[in-house]
């Protein structure tokens, strides 16, 4: 079984929402950078973010020049009747020599495998392939080489999956914003705002967000629904639906999840032992300062583990949501 093999050095897969962030990530030691086009073909279709074709071509040249790879996320679900935008995105990624595309939709994966057989395919976390049978399906049917695992699995479950699916590679999230629902299987955002990650590439979109300052503090709203209220000096979060404060059983609480960031720096050795091929940092929307800080921290962390040195003690508190951190679903007690 694969689990008995000595661990290989995992790739660090880093986010870039803009060309400047791509350079920051590469310069900070990213092995791979993942990006998206400036439209609804990717799950970070945020205002003012992402790459046009020219920027992607230049970004890929910059990364390749420094020995880094570029992965293009085309991970929303094409609209019925109009798949052209998504097909064009795959064609352009292939033409611009992207090292792989990250896809979620079965129809689009089938299209890419058929029309661009030379293009390396990764399965997006938005496909939520959470078990060996699902992964085997994508690998055997379409030649998918790597699967980004949904953030619902424990480290033990990840190790089991890796042992069963070799040589298919797995990529797991190691830092950043945390979906508490199985990714790609959540319609909370469209229920409230009309726009969802699957269809529009956005969750809790900024255009639906309002902050109201009063003497009692700040109220954050999403499409008119109050998502949270903060006292005057309490740290305020972005009103992502599943990180809001709600009332259930007559009690107000962070029912789904607190405003918090995933941080696995301290369990990197366990994830490496579990046979994970690539470590992914979330946050294409977070900007250069965030990218540089997090990539440096995880570069140092991975290098330390691989060299048998103790983990570096790096404080990432100031860039985490609400100043809080969690190891999320990787530890079973989270459930």
């Amino acid at each position: 079984m694969g689990s008995t093999l000595p661990p290989t050095r995992p790739e660090l897969v880093c986010p870039a929402g803009t060309p400047a962030a791509l350079k920051s990530a590469v310069d900070a030691g990213a092995d791979c950078v993942y990006v998206g086009f400036r439209d609804e073909t990717n799950a970070r279709n945020f205002p003012g973010l992402n790459f046009n074709r020219k920027e992607l071509g230049e970004g890929i040249a910059y990364a390749h020049d420094k020995g880094a790879k570029v992965l293009v996320a085309i991970n929303t679900f094409p609209r019925a009747g109009t798949p052209e935008l998504w097909h064009q995105a795959v064609a352009d990624a292939a033409r611009l020599k992207a090292d792989a595309v990250i896809l979620a939709d079965i129809g689009l994966i089938e299209h890419a495998a058929r029309v661009h057989p030379e293009l390396r395919l990764h399965l997006s976390v938005q496909a939520a392939a959470s078990n060996p049978a699902a992964i085997a399906f994508y690998a055997e049917r379409f030649g998918v080489k790597r699967v980004v695992l949904p953030r619902v699995l424990t480290v033990q479950e990840i190790a089991t999956i890796n042992a069963r699916i070799a040589p298919v590679e797995t990529e797991v999230f190691v830092f950043g914003g945390l979906c508490v629902m199985a990714e790609g299987r959540c319609a909370l955002s469209s229920y409230v705002t009309g726009q969802s990650p699957n269809m529009n590439g956005v969750c809790s979109p900024a255009g639906e967000v309002r902050y109201t300052e009063t003497h009692a503090g700040v109220t954050s709203e999403l499409s008119g629904f109050t998502i949270n209220k903060f006292a005057p000096n309490e740290p305020a979060g972005y009103p992502t639906l599943c990180k809001g404060r709600f009332i259930a059983r007559d009690k107000a609480s962070y029912l789904f999840e607190e405003p918090t960031s995933l941080n696995t720096l301290n369990i990197l050795p366990d994830l490496i032992k579990a046979g994970v091929t690539a470590f992914k940092i979330e946050g294409r929307q977070r900007g250069r300062a965030y990218v540089a800080a997090v990539v440096q921290a995880f570069r140092a962390g991975v290098d330390a583990v691989m060299a048998g040195r103790p983990l570096p003690d790096i404080d990432l508190d100031r860039i985490t949501e609400g100043g809080k951190q969690t190891t999320g679903a990787y530890e079973k007690a989270w459930r």
Partner: peptide, 10 residues
């Protein structure tokens, strides 16, 4: 996640 004709056909 069946959002389009391609996936439906698959």
């Amino acid at each position: 996640n069946i959002y389009n004709e391609g996936t439906l056909a698959s």
